[in-house]
Design a binder for these strands. Structure first.
Lengths: 239, 239
DNA sequence: TGACTGTACCTGTCTATACAACTTAGACTA
DNA sequence: TAGTCTAAGTTGTATAGACAGGTACAGTCA
């Protein structure tokens, strides 16, 4: 490999850039074939491992699809999915340089309602732990967190001090998080929730319902209410 | 390499799993050191390239942080950010097996208001293209898309048939998307929007504001209104 | 005709080795 | 003491070669 000319960036990046340029310019249309590893070896004079790295990274980035025994192809882009990050409210507030404080409204053992039993995949009237916590940003309520937890997976849940740890942090410390699902809604809050969040009448809520799996079963269901007038979720994305 | 025992999965995955288990169980705390490549070579009897692959993939996944010349460390997890995908409404509806239809309410040349001028970083009363489109799922309105576009980047915007292509698809075909930003709110819709979406009075909207960058400047601002009672955004996440 | 086989090609994984660049710590020097 | 040099350890990149397993296709055999 001669390194002197244009050795400004690693070889695998040059190969990647070449492929990306051809895809970006439309020269290689969606689902059309991109050069195989051995073709790249010939045309760029690199080793197969280097060509492999370029194609593997493009696959990881969702730019190409690779099929063993067949070849690599330009991926049908999904008109592109843009991820929006859902983070811990405590982190978010601290990153804004504000003071986070949590107040436990209730923390108790309850019996599963029909709806909850279905969510968790357990029998009706089974035991569940339930916490209701209000999170404040500079003493203004910003999130009401209503959380239901499977006792088997977090037996000490009722003893946790949620002023110090968030429930989410406690749960990932107790049991490894396998999977999470989010539902996002706009809804009018119940009177009880409206008061806890000090919201005006007729003000809508942003509601995030988060379900997390551990060991193949649902470990926790959280309903996170945000006051619509005060809270805004944001996310950035670079392709 | 002896392959006979437990050759159920590739070597680099076994190395990754070993590291993930130690991090997941809390044995290796955040910001503590994980074994270097050469230590993994010794303890697993694999080549350095295989150890490198395991660590590199963990870095790509945000599990570890690697510093050249220093070592690899367990990443401070942000209590973990959960991505929620924001997809094209047309794709979403089709994936549910339903019929998507779009109706153009208006498509015109306008003058930037103060707010829009600030969003785009252009002078007040500059020219902008504006489209208002209602997207139907099985003839029920599901999204109102109010979009502003910089004329310089999409000169033919006013001639596009939005019954066939979505505005988003058209824009990414015209100019490469560099970056996107999303804001998510719950809000009460204006009367005009409430009617177009056939919403009941006092029903809140889920509002997504998407800004996209092309060539370093804001190319498009879209306000996407969803009826709160009908629409739910969802996303899954596997660590 | 239909089923099977061989071949060519492709991706996936793995090894052994090499050199570069970077960081840290300790020894050495002015 | 303060600065410099060196050696060891680490990651980043790259090569050449190897084998396994998947796929497609042409050719062969019953």
């Amino acid at each position: 490999m001669d390194k002197s000319p244009a050795a400004l960036q690693p070889l695998y990046l040059r190969v990647k850039r070449h492929i990306l340029e051809n895809i970006g310019s439309g020269k290689w249309a969606a689902s059309s074939r991109v050069p195989s590893e051995s073709e790249l070896v010939k045309s760029f004079g690199v080793s197969r491992m280097t060509a492999n790295r370029a194609l593997k990274e493009l696959r990881d980035e969702g730019i190409v699809v690779r099929i063993a025994g067949v070849g690599s192809f330009v991926a049908e882009r999904h008109a592109r999915a843009h991820p929006l990050e859902i983070r811990s409210i405590a982190d978010e507030i601290r990153e804004r340089g504000h003071v986070h404080r949590a107040e436990t409204v209730s923390l108790e053992r309850i019996r599963a309602t029909a709806e909850l039993a279905e969510d968790f995949g357990i029998a009706r009237r089974s035991e569940l732990y339930c916490s209701v916590i209000v999170h404040f940003e500079n003493d203004r309520p910003m999130q009401l967190e209503e959380r239901y937890v499977l006792p088997a997976l977090a037996p000490d849940y009722l003893k946790v001090d949620f002023g110090r740890n968030t429930a989410h942090d406690y749960l990932i410390s107790v049991a490894p998080l396998q999977q999470a699902e989010h539902l996002l809604r706009a809804a009018m809050p119940e009177e009880r929730i409206r008061k806890l969040l000090a919201m005006k009448r007729d003000e809508p809520c942003l509601l995030v319902i988060r379900r997390t799996w551990t060991a193949g079963q649902i470990a926790s269901v959280a309903r996170l209410y945000y006051p619509g007038s005060r809270y805004e979720m944001s996310g950035r994305f670079r392709p």
